[in-house]
């Protein structure tokens, strides 16, 4: 399969990636536009980034978003790692079908449904809506992604790895911390990053579950976008895209390294 790319292949790739990237590239370029108009290039300027720093609303929304993302992704990683471990290693138990259903369903569930149902649950439980409820909601859907990432990493290693540790005298708990966890670490890290960006990104579920005083960045962006395209939003977007791109590239490199290790371990 190392055949040279045909003209067809090259065309497909170039147009495909142009389609995927051109809108983002345009957005980034126009965030440096001196003109307020989005179609006319008025020269290079970083004034919109400056304006951003002045914008109290955006700054506090960014702070809320980051807090929610940090806390929710950390909890989601712990719970999701457990869930992935259960899916990959615990064999069958009563209620397993329901469990795996609850792991896979949130990933395809329309966000409006997830958001509405969580909100109603919070109202029923009489939990005050705010940062706390957004965080709980984000933990819930992020943990499913972590579970799937961890599970797919675990299934590439056979059970024998953990059995060998126990055979050599490690108790189940020590087996987990000394063998399983180091082996799935790359998946845990990329699961955390995935949760973090999912939380950073979420508009719909946050809108449903937030309360007064808890406005996340996507909610802020959304309310402004409805009024039209503005260079400030372009600037915020550019910053977010830059952060996420950096994170993803690091995560992919970690994952690639880990894959190389595991491939070499399983000829």
């Amino acid at each position: 399969m190392h055949s040279r790319l045909s003209a067809f292949n090259i065309t497909a790739l170039v147009t495909g990636f142009a389609f995927l990237y051109l809108p983002i590239v345009i957005l980034v370029i126009f965030s440096f536009n001196a003109s307020r108009l989005v179609t006319v290039w008025g020269g290079f300027s970083t004034q919109w980034y400056g304006a951003l720093l002045e914008n109290e609303g955006i700054r506090s929304a960014a702070a809320v978003t980051l807090k929610v993302a940090l806390i929710s992704s950390t909890f989601a990683t712990v719970l999701g790692t457990l869930a992935g471990l259960i899916l990959a290693r615990f064999g069958s138990f009563r209620g397993r079908t329901l469990f795996s259903g609850m792991i896979y369903a949130p990933m395809v569930m329309p966000e409006v449904i997830t958001g509405l149902s969580l909100l109603l649950a919070f109202v029923a439980l009489a939990i005050d809506r705010g940062m706390m409820t957004i965080t709980l909601a984000h933990i819930t859907f992020s943990l499913c992604y972590v579970a799937v990432v961890v599970q797919s990493r675990l299934v590439t290693f056979d059970n024998a790895l953990e059995e060998a540790a126990m055979d050599l005298g490690a108790t189940p708990a020590r087996t987990f911390f000394q063998v399983t966890l180091p082996v799935i670490m790359p998946a845990v890290v990329s699961g955390w990053l995935l949760s973090f960006t999912l939380s950073l990104d979420d508009l719909v579920i946050a809108s449903f579950t937030s309360g007064p005083g808890a406005t996340t960045l996507p909610m802020k962006i959304y309310s402004q976008v409805r009024l039209g395209v503005t260079p400030e939003i372009n600037a915020v977007s550019t910053i977010i895209v830059g952060l996420v791109a950096g994170g993803v590239i690091i995560a992919s490199l970690i994952a690639k390294q880990a894959r190389r290790d595991s491939d070499a371990n399983h000829p």
Partner: peptide, 13 residues
């Protein structure tokens, strides 16, 4: 991985 909202927003312009 990049913000869904931002990518949709980019098309408005």
């Amino acid at each position: 991985w990049t913000s869904f909202l931002i990518r949709v927003y980019a098309w408005i312009g």
